[in-house]
Design a protein around this nucleic acid. Structure first.
Lengths: 222, 222
DNA sequence: TTTCATTTTTAGGCTTGCCTAAAAAACTGT
DNA sequence: ACAGTTTTTTAGGCAAGCCTAAAAATGAAA
């Protein structure tokens, strides 16, 4: 088992995040932006990681994770999300406070710790933001989720995830009394600006901007 | 709140441990031994920490923690021991496996995390090895403990701590079915070599060497 | 007190991970 | 295709934290 520095782990995670949606290579600049560092530092580190066989690097062409690099990155995501569940479920943190702490906890090295934590939490499949948690083999459950913005009037749905996890957004949702598991029904859609009026089941009616609707994952229930 | 590197924190803890029993200054060599590093590296770091006002350093005379240094060191001990409780009580680790993991967890920076963890664990006063856990103000409960080796025949006592926490010792205790909370009675003391025959309440009779008896803290119950 | 062993410090050097500035390569539009 | 822009790499440097070897300070014993 190779042991990586925290910096190396953070770069792996950044490459992972950048490449997981579109399957193009991650560019030096994109990585630099995500890590808030200079492109020169990124080039340095990419060479190191390529030397360790964790990613495939070709000058001026960006990088892709190797199989081993992907495994390590997936395991980091697993650890991060498990710790987030712990912080929210067991220590009662609000979902907008857990990211930074999980960012530190994910670097703790102990496979047995992860395994026992997973068991203690009852092998959760999703983290507090609705993101799927990879299992010990790196497999993760698929969310059958769609964007709230794609629903039509009268559709009923349950909130299962957020696209964006910034503090401001999460805190705004709290203020609206929207959290994972909240059931809702669409009342009306305003084509003019894409905003929607929805009613929280057992609660009040609220109007959400298009921007908000585009950042909420739901599952239809009717 | 000053933020220290993990290396700086580890040095603080080492000085703390060395100076907590005898109130003499910690010597460069003693610190080097505890940190498994060279005396030269220690000198480097002591200058850094003295520069930050965390300890008092005089060439060739060793160091003592400053008030602030002591506070930081105590808080590290608090975090370490709280995480050990978590690992043993919640994740069901055995007491000889938790030190290295707690050593990593103690460096996670978040006062709120420590506070919530403490509450979640029900504000424990002692860690799985019987060592006292400082509270948020740095105060810790006194153990009314004595060494098993100081007991006389017929004395009854309960095991409340260990002097030494090496893996080999803890595993040996497990094999003897000795754990914190185990009640026992002294049967006989052999002055010749200091070994003792004791009986575990509700269990078998065992003989412990002087070395073992010198490393077990007990509280008399009769 | 003087010598000798031990402890501590200094000096110089290494890697990691970061920086800026400048050079080189790759894209873009005409 | 080539000029200009953007991206990426190279070069050189810095701080942290470690190392070894050598010098200096301390202290113990004769």
């Amino acid at each position: 088992m190779e042991v990586l520095t925290q910096a190396e782990e953070n770069y792996l995670k950044a490459v992972f995040k950048i490449t997981e949606n579109d399957d193009k290579a991650a560019s030096t600049n994109a990585i630099a932006a995500m890590m808030s560092t200079s492109a020169a530092s990124v080039t340095d580190m990419l060479k190191r990681l390529a030397g360790k066989g964790l990613l495939h690097y070709e000058k001026h062409r960006g990088v892709v994770l190797s199989e081993r690099g992907g495994e390590l990155a997936t395991n980091l995501v697993r650890k991060h999300r498990l710790w987030e569940v712990f912080l929210v479920k067991m220590l009662d943190f609000s979902w907008d406070k857990v990211h930074d702490i999980a960012e530190q906890l994910e670097h703790v090295q102990s496979d047995e710790l992860v395994e026992r934590l997973d068991g203690f939490l009852d092998r959760p499949q999703f983290d507090p933001h609705g993101d799927p948690i990879p299992d010990a083999n790196g497999k993760m459950a698929m969310r059958k989720q769609i964007l709230l913005s794609s629903l039509d009037p009268k559709d009923q749905a349950v909130l299962v995830g957020v696209q964006e996890s910034t503090n401001t957004f999460l805190q705004y949702l709290d203020k609206l009394k929207l959290s994972l598991g909240t059931k809702l029904q669409v009342v009306e859609r305003f084509e003019y600006d894409g905003s929607m009026k929805i009613v929280l089941i057992g609660g009040e009616e609220i109007t959400l901007s298009h921007k908000v609707c585009e950042n909420l994952f739901v599952q239809k229930t009717k």
